[in-house]
Design a protein around this nucleic acid. Structure first.
Lengths: 114, 114
DNA sequence: CGGGATCCTTAACGATACTG
DNA sequence: CAGTATCGTTAAGGATCCCG
């Protein structure tokens, strides 16, 4: 995964930079769930039934690389891996809440408009 | 353009719905410029030098379809087409500002971290 | 000027199988 | 359990040409 969109360095606009980081297909939802607390990999999978295991792994790796998510591996069998937001990741909270609230409006609008 | 991501109806999370609408490659930036006022097609092109004409057209069509942008064609030669936010589109302003501000933080962080 | 139509390349994504 | 590897498909996007 080359992340063409993210590593595009000429993001003249900061909005573009943000969306490059959180705009991935599942990243917003993952971050939103992590806002509620630490999750194991399998727990996240249940939260995102439409996201394949492969994609979830990839998205988590990118979020980790961007410093939003911390990954902790417990050396035990069977393996246990936990994901949580970093402080920088938590700084996204107001934005995520804003996205969620606007999303609600949009969905209500869709129902009216058809 | 089938907009696989957008018309996916099982968006259980509202964050996902929002990102489906504004998460397109250039949509955030387009919306951000339109916040500043009405723009002609050619003006938007100058604002987004890395976006091809084809892509700009497609993204604008989708934003129009989602009710965020209004397109006005003036019957004259050469043609003049103007784009502006609808009231619903303007309701995204706080979210866009939030994305911009967080994007600034992210870019500053990138410079420190390398 | 503001597109649309077409063709082609590349990136994104899914399915499946395998593993410590 | 939490992945990785591989393969195949689909969607996104670029280049070019044409048009009123």
């Amino acid at each position: 995964m080359s992340r063409k969109r993210d590593d595009d360095s000429n993001t003249n606009c900061a909005v573009e930079a943000s969306l490059g980081v959180i705009g991935g297909r599942w990243k917003g939802v993952v971050l939103y769930w992590l806002l509620k607390g630490t999750h194991r990999f399998g727990e996240l999978r249940k939260r995102l039934p439409n996201c394949s295991q492969r994609m979830l792994t990839l998205q988590l790796r990118e979020l980790e690389e961007d410093g939003l998510v911390k990954r902790t591996v417990y050396a035990q069998v069977p393996p246990r891996v936990e994901y949580e937001l970093t402080a920088f990741g938590r700084s996204l909270e107001p934005v995520l809440i804003g996205l969620r609230d606007w999303g609600e409006k949009y969905k209500r609008r869709l129902q009216r408009t058809g």
